[in-house]
Design a protein around this nucleic acid. Structure first.
Lengths: 351, 351
DNA sequence: TCTTTGTTATTTAATGGTTAATAAATAAAT
DNA sequence: ATTTATTTATTAACCATTAAATAACAAAGA
């Protein structure tokens, strides 16, 4: 190898070598019609012989563009990048990025701070997922003139968003559970739920879903505080689902149905139940939320709420690109359809 | 909203406003010890009151750093971002990025060209996956001084890499198939296999695996050209697996075992077999490669080769950061262990 | 007192591609 | 010959960081 630090030729070198100005070199590449064909020829020849191509950093600076959109991780990687639902959304975003000739930047917290990450994110637009956005972050993005679209965020905030009707969807699936006679129910909420009430009055998705469950329970003369209903918290991972089983049983031995807010958690529970040779749904029913591919692969197949992760990603990023291009100005909110999917993991309650 | 284009204050504005130079402002943030405490105080106050923080683009230019590493997609999104194995690798990379305070840039082809994408990628290092790297791309990265680590690439190229011993792993699992009496076998290779021989003499992963199968077959007196062995090609997706079943049967009605190079394809096949009510493994055995989470969820559980996707991502990105930081210079190749996992999808052949 | 040396504080200039604004040169029209 | 239009090319600004240069000032020595 060459020990001498190879220095890449810059536009200045091409200018000097070809006898034209930097501007002329730039035009030769980007707007050749503004130069004489003689100049273009000479410049391109020079550039070619020196192996020149523009430095992306400098290019991005002068264009004030990054040619990338960001996906802001709401928590650390362990709780995000192994959730197939989130990955499905990312897949949708990538598809749009590809067709827009953009890259997709996955943005973890920077020095443990989401705010820091947002300050220095090298992106033209940002998509968040599953977070109630603090004002500070919105303010930074506003100052930086970076548009934002929130997926599964807080639909009551004045931010462009893509959501399903989480309250109604949760109500609907809980009704299916109650309709089948279940009364001793364990609800597995997501751990973000913890923060919901405390930090602010932001209605995050877990809270909306709890409200949906609550409304359904009321219709059957129950409430969230009824002793037959218990609530557990879990991270959104398969492993947490696996570990949840012992908690469920110890907290409420008479439980007949577990209602979770996430398929991957439900699948973890189902997996554990199979290992423990507990009959689903005869002994215990399990219900999820998302409708992953995995949910129809596992036996018994999972009863769940289908929500279009891929489409959410596509809609959100298309919307984001509209903002980036200045096509729209107003705060657009997109509500995508959901669908209750009844499969074998939910059975009738037999007293 | 404000119709006036908000112009973010720049370092120049803070300099002017505070009465110090641009450099002084920069030092106030990055090296306050080089200024009088009086100057620091005044500058920070000014910056704060004007709501200044550094423009990442300009910052990156002067530092000649992007604070991001790239993951280069070998094909279009449809064939990559929905493969759980690739996503597992990406998860591993993200973990390292998070701890290094870097972002991860997913880089699809730019204007349908991987070469273009590499030219303008705003990253400090690049990870590729499952591609035999053309010289052109290596050359561009060399010019740009951007280090590269290849996962599942061509181990014979002089490029830092992370691989398993694909030839031996494939040999081993094929032996398990043959040991159980199977002789009418359909091999499902990956579509990249097509290019392998034609374009260059690069040994891509599919080719290595074919060679491993071949060696095993020879040990049992068979060969790839034997009429009892047939080879099909497939994209690495669930859907392609589902659609493959009819091809398998039409090409070789007497097949007793399907050996695939990818779990997600095998899972697609298994899913279709379940829909068609074909007994696995009594009528047809199926073998995969990767050992996804899904492979132990599906019934029957999939026989496969376990390879550590997460670790591959972690190793590759750690190696890449070593190159970025200049900690190492030589071309390091990492070989990670694999393991044959026998599960219910592979049975004995009953004549 | 005047120079030398050392220390601290601050500024200049370069980094690199793009483009608005400007200038220069040439052709066309009056 | 003079004005107008068109083509071609250049200057300067954008922006944060930092190596290198400079300025300011004090202490030490002649």
């Amino acid at each position: 190898m060459n020990d001498i630090k190879k220095k890449r030729p810059t536009i200045k070198d091409i200018a000097k070598e070809s006898g034209y100005s930097k501007t002329a070199v730039s035009f030769a590449f980007n707007e050749p019609s503004r130069l004489s064909s003689e100049a273009v020829k000479k410049i391109l020849e020079t550039a070619n012989s020196l192996g020149y191509f523009p430095n992306p950093l400098a290019r991005n600076l002068s264009l004030q563009k990054h040619f990338s959109i960001g996906f802001l991780l709401p928590q650390n990687i362990n709780h995000t990048m192994n959730n197939p639902y989130i990955l499905k959304v990312i897949e949708g975003i990538s598809k749009v990025c590809e067709s827009e000739n953009y890259t997709l930047t996955i943005i973890p917290p920077l020095r443990s701070s989401i705010e820091e990450a947002v300050k220095s994110a090298a992106v033209d637009g940002l998509i968040t997922m599953g977070m109630g956005l603090e004002n500070k972050i919105v303010e930074i993005l506003d100052k930086r003139n970076i548009p934002l679209v929130a997926i599964d965020g807080n639909p009551s905030q004045n931010i462009p968003s893509v959501n399903i009707d989480d309250e109604r969807a949760s109500h609907d699936i809980m009704c299916e559970v109650l309709k089948r006679g279940h009364r001793n129910i364990t609800i597995v909420s997501l751990s973000e739920d913890l923060f919901t009430d405390k930090i602010s009055n932001i209605k995050t998705v877990p809270l909306l879903r709890r409200q949906g469950y609550e409304r359904a329970l009321k219709e059957y003369g129950l409430s969230l505080t009824d002793e037959r209903i218990s609530i557990l918290l879990s991270e959104c991972t398969f492993e947490d689902g696996v570990n949840l089983y012992s908690q469920i049983i110890s907290q409420q031995p008479s439980v007949s149905c577990v209602v979770t807010m996430s398929d991957i958690v439900a699948i973890g529970i189902l997996y554990k139940l199979r290992v423990e040779k507990i009959d689903v749904p005869a002994t215990l029913s399990v219900v999820g939320f998302d409708n992953l591919l995995e949910s129809k692969l596992i036996s018994p197949r999972l009863t769940t709420v289908d929500q279009p992760g891929l489409d959410k990603g596509i809609f959100a990023s298309n919307l984001l690109f509209d903002y980036i291009k200045g096509k729209i100005e107003n705060t657009t909110r997109i509500e995508v359809p959901y669908k209750v999917i009844i499969r074998e993991s939910l059975g009738e309650f037999n007293a």
